[in-house]
Design a protein around this nucleic acid. Sequence first.
DNA 1: CGAGTTTGACCAGCGC
DNA 2: GCGCTGGTCAAACTCG
Length: 317
Amino acid sequence: MDYSSSWVDTSLDLNLNPKRIKNEVSIQENDFMELGIRNISAKEESGALMEELNRVSAENKKLTEMLTVMCENYNALRSQLMGYMNKNSEKELSPSRKRKSETSNNVINNLNNNTIGNSESSSTDEESCKKQREEVIKAKISRIYSKTDASDHTTLVVKDGYQWRKYGQKVTRDNPSPRAYFKCSFAPTCPVKKKVQRSIEDQSVLVATYEGEHNHPHPSQMEATSGASRSLNLGSVPCSASHGSSGPTITLDLTKSKTTTNNDARSSKPRMDNSPEVKQFLVEQMASSLTKDPNFTAALAAAISGKMLQQNHKEKW
DNA sequence: CGAGTTTGACCAGCGC
DNA sequence: GCGCTGGTCAAACTCG
């Protein structure tokens, strides 16, 4: 999740354009001049309005800055939490098979050294943890269908913007075409895995199955925030999001997008992140994740109450 | 030379 | 216990 300053700017832009209003005021002022009615009072009024405008725009600027700082703090906290969670998961999970065998050896050692009761309790804990982990993974599985060049039956690459490292390939029983296994290599701690296999029905369709959630922003988003104002790769991908009983599910149907090069897609197709649906979706996503965060809501409440108190103080004086 | 890919071997889970 | 299958590892290889 990333909150760029541009988003903050646009969302908080209250269309208070002092220049424009200034012109309108000056037109009004000219009309009054022509009519020759209450020149001095009109000037006073416009001056007061300008003052008010300046005050409001300054306040707007302050609020924008506050929200930007808040978003930065939120991101920092979030990344800290992610790091902490990764550390914990590294401790709890057995990432490699070797470690698994080590843990099984430990169980055997426990059996040899300790009483049966102790070993049993440890094994039941392991089982419950494992079940929980499986449930979490199941809830974060998504499937993507990607249309590829019909003549090209060799590549198993689904271009989703992320950086993947292939670690295996297998021919499965139910499908003659091989299944490729990928791990997200963009972030070393990212747990996301991807399986890519051609569809049995249509060999030109790649079926990518994603497991887990990325603990880092989308690479294109990272680029966008680091200076280059490029839009999301997702931009040209038709997507739908649902929140079923099994958890959040994202389905991307890449078969609906033409197999054009990135440049072609960029030049000919209207970018999807410009469409109101995607904007609304992104805003809803941001809003939901922000409202779910107690740190953010607390900080926001504190900021608003502080601002209100400040306002009351001003009005009194 | 480092990063990514390939591929045979190994392991765990499951059904019989 | 055995065989089958899916998933993962890691050494060898390739490529820029």
